[in-house]
Structure formats: structure tokens, C-alpha cells
Design a binder for these strands. Structure first.
Ligand code: SF4
Ligand code: SF4
Lengths: 145, 145
DNA sequence: TTGTTTTAAGATTTAATAGTCTGAAAACTG
DNA sequence: CAGTTTTCAGACTATTAAATCTTAAAACAA
């Protein structure tokens, strides 16, 4: 049961790493992040690029360059990130991946599915990076986020 | 947000179709199922084969052959089917797809994730084919399950 | 200016999922 | 028996996701 692609997971981990570095609004190189989190540098670069294009990150080239959160962690919702990385239709997709149905034509799983999805969606929408960056938990970021 | 592969979704739809056909323990050809549910015949055949090997379906070759539920719908839990089609580690997998962590080394998402997963898992484990086969809902099986 | 560090952009390769096809083997029909 | 219908087994192809590689562009440093 995997609800996020690798790319989204990498993106979230990187954002949490940045949030954990504290409020110093310095740029952190993607090299450092990829090394600390043990993620392929090139792949992570691509993922973070799409976050840079969407006002989640700002980036800066050259020595001492890197990426930084574009906004305060309190204002970056997990749902935003996921919608960018998984596609805007992320929460529209069905349990069974089928189009053309819904409340008017519910399948046997419909109401259960709808309930689960709403619950997860609401958590994603109400949780920000700041909510997740307790230092205690972030110790395990390498393996765990 | 898709939590099942196409193959699993097809397998579940086919099982619900069989359950909906009623208690007549006749064999239903895969051709009929694939046609009614608009699923590739050959692909569905492969999916149903793995269910036949695991005591979910029984199959019979030749004219008037096909597949039938191996047990009463009341005894076939969704979790069984999903574990067969997605792999036994389905409920072990993490939100972020990472190994080597858990309660001892929780990541920032761990407890939320654990809660969601437990809820969905428990629904899959406590729901049987019989619970889903209300005729009202099964009208829409073609598009909707 | 020349060289170094870093992100940007996109082509390319690899791996996993999804789907197709072929040739059997089992069971029936006449 | 020969011919038909069906599942079985596995090779094959296609599509998508994941990861890698290459070249450029921006920024700095000496
Ligand atoms: S009816 Fe609901 S659960 Fe069923 S396939 Fe459609 S959207 Fe999904
Ligand atoms: S700590 Fe929990 S949520 Fe985080 S990566 Fe590990 S299993 Fe997943």
C-alpha cells in the first residue's frame, strides 16, 4: 500500500530536511541534501526543480547556492506539494482507477473509498511542514521520511 | 491517489461480478467477464489464474467451463485478494516506500501514516465479497468497480 | 578573464507495470 | 475419433515510472 510515488516521497523528505535546518534562510545545496538523505542527486535535482518552479522552493546557482524554502514552513501544506509532484488530479483518482462514476453511479466500494480519501486529504491539507519538523522526529529523517 | 494496481482492481471487479451472479455455483467464462466488465481478456485471464491457484476461485476447462468462487462470498475477505494480487507485504509498505524504520525510529509522518493504514487495513480485513454485493450497487459494476 | 561550483534542462537508459499473443492442455460435442 | 471451447503457461511487446547522464547557464572567486 503505497500512496505516493518515489519522487513525491523524495520531495517531501527534502522539504522536511530544509525545514529542520532551522529558520536560517540560507541556501542548501542539493548535493548536501541528496547525500544526507541518501537519494540520487540527479533525480532529486529534477524533483526539486519542479518545486522551485511552483513557489515552494527558491533556488540560487553558484558557490553557496542551493535551494531554500520559498515561504515559511507554517504556510507550506503537504497537499500543495503532493499535488505538484503527483499531478493536480491526485485526489480525484479512484481506488480502482476508473473514470465515469461517482455518487450518481457508485460502485460497491464507493462510499468506503470516499471516506478514506476524504480523511487522508483533509490531513494533507491541514498539515504543514512546520507541523512535522519536531527535532525529535527529524533525527531519523535519513531512513524515515 | 491510487492504492491498488490495475490488476488488483480487475481481480476485485471480476470477483464482485461472480458474487453478483448469485449463488448458482456455475462456471462463468472469463470471456463473459472480460466482455461485461470491459477488461482485456488475456490480462484478466492472467489475474484470475493467480486467484485460481490460491483457493479464491476454482476453474474448469472446456465448453461450459470458466471460473467460479471457490468459497462462499461471505468468507472471501478483500484483504485476502489484495495480498495475493499485490504481494504479501502490501500492508507493510510505507507511505514513503522506505525500509528500516518504524515505531523505534519514526519519521515525521509515521504516526499519521500508521493510523490511516490501520484503518484501511481493518476495513479490507473485515469486508467480504458478500458485504459488497448489494444488487443496487452492482448495476454500475461495469464502469464502477 | 579563466576556472570552479552550483542549478537548469532535457536526452538517455533501466526497471517495473500493463497489456498482448501464441501454443499448448483439458474438457466437451458429435 | 476429429473438432471446438475453454483455461493454462509463458514468451513477447508497450507504456510508464525511476534513475542516470550530458551539456548548458548562472553565479562566484581569484
Ligand atoms: S464508484 Fe467511486 S469507488 Fe467506485 S470506481 Fe467510481 S469513484 Fe471509484
Ligand atoms: S517511520 Fe513510519 S511513516 Fe516514516 S518512513 Fe518509516 S514506516 Fe514510513
Amino acid at each position: 500500500m503505497k500512496i505516493l510515488s518515489n519522487g513525491s516521497a523524495y520531495g517531501l523528505r527534502a522539504l522536511l530536511y530544509l525545514a529542520a535546518k532551522g529558520d536560517t534562510r540560507e541556501f542548501v545545496s542539493i548535493g548536501e541534501i541528496s547525500e544526507q538523505l541518501d537519494i540520487s542527486f540527479h533525480f532529486l535535482t529534477k524533483v526539486l526543480q519542479s518545486l522551485s518552479q511552483k513557489d515552494i522552493l527558491v533556488s540560487y546557482r553558484g558557490p553557496n547556492g542551493g535551494v531554500a524554502l520559498a515561504r515559511a514552513p507554517e504556510t507550506i501544506r503537504l497537499s500543495e506539494v503532493v499535488l505538484i509532484l503527483e499531478g493536480e488530479d491526485y485526489f480525484e483518482k479512484c481506488l480502482l482507477g476508473l473514470p465515469g462514476c461517482g455518487d450518481q453511479a457508485p460502485c460497491p466500494m464507493h462510499y468506503r473509498w470516499k471516506h478514506w480519501k476524504a480523511s487522508i486529504r483533509s490531513e494533507f491539507e491541514s498539515t504543514t511542514l512546520a507541523d512535522l519538523k519536531e527535532p525529535e522526529l527529524l533525527k531519523h529523517l535519513r531512513w524515515a521520511t
